[in-house]
Amino acid sequence: MTGFRAALVRRPYLIAVVLAAILLAVNVVAMPSAAASYWPGLIANLAPLAFVAIASTPSVLGGGIDLSIGPQVVLSNIVIVMVLLPAGIDSPWAVIPIVLALGILIGTINGVLVALLRFPAMIATLCVMFVLIGIAQRLAPQPAGGSTPWIEFLTSRAGLFPIAALVIAVPFAVWLVLRRTSFVRNLLAAGGDPIAATSAGVPVSAVRLLSYTLGGLFASIGGLMLTSLLRSADASQASTLVLIGLAAVALGGTAFTGGRGGLLGSLAGALCIFLIQNLLTALSVPAVWINVIYGLLLVGSVVLSASLLSQKNVRQPV
């Protein structure tokens, strides 16, 4: 156990990875006949939730939180289907830059509110969340269809290889590049101990602001994936995605106090939640119980990682 604990201190996402592996095995056992249609589409179906979790992570690492990630994903889906496509803008070279720019804009607004104007992150992003949900409902009062071939391609397969895996790899590539710069180190320092970071001269406000921008960027890619999967616009999912995304982040071992965790954990956390959802649906567990099970799972994993890490995280008194 001590070996696992030591590994967990270095790689807090291990719990989620182990849990995801177990769930995959259980899925295989529980649904042997589903293999043909189920497995190849798994990654594509996972994509929206994975992006919500990944996009929620940077701000949490910096000691904040972004409650508006779910609505951001949904809004970029609705902007594509209800605004861009009807206006005849359907080339990927136009749609992708517009959607990404929108994501960067919304993320930066969050960042300015929290990091520069010093509103409490919870309140500021909650307000942004409501505004975005309002705009989404205004643009798409009821679900409406709309898609183009290249968007559908994003969740299709090339042979057996899912294209969605490539898209999910995009934020990881961005993150890997950022890890080579001082940005990620600064962000973890700002989230881990803002007082120490500030006194040492870490540009705390700047990295925190950018963490929200980064979240907005990732969320907008998630909007593309959601569009590809739904082939329609639907404003109704915005608020559920918020909470499930944050649950995936917590499950992935990222500390909500900031300073510890990463994108990989959030992906593994999203995978866990997704697999449980599938499993329970396949076992025809009533939908109302699924939320109860999410909750229990989350509490269990948070308690587990907190108790495994507790001794390492205590700050020694001076």
Partner: peptide, 18 residues
């Protein structure tokens, strides 16, 4: 910053944003 390594702590704050 307790979550970081010794060398990261020594050079904490010496870097720019990127």
């Amino acid at each position: 910053v307790t979550g970081q390594s010794i060398v990261e702590n020594v050079w904490l704050g010496a870097d720019g944003v990127f």
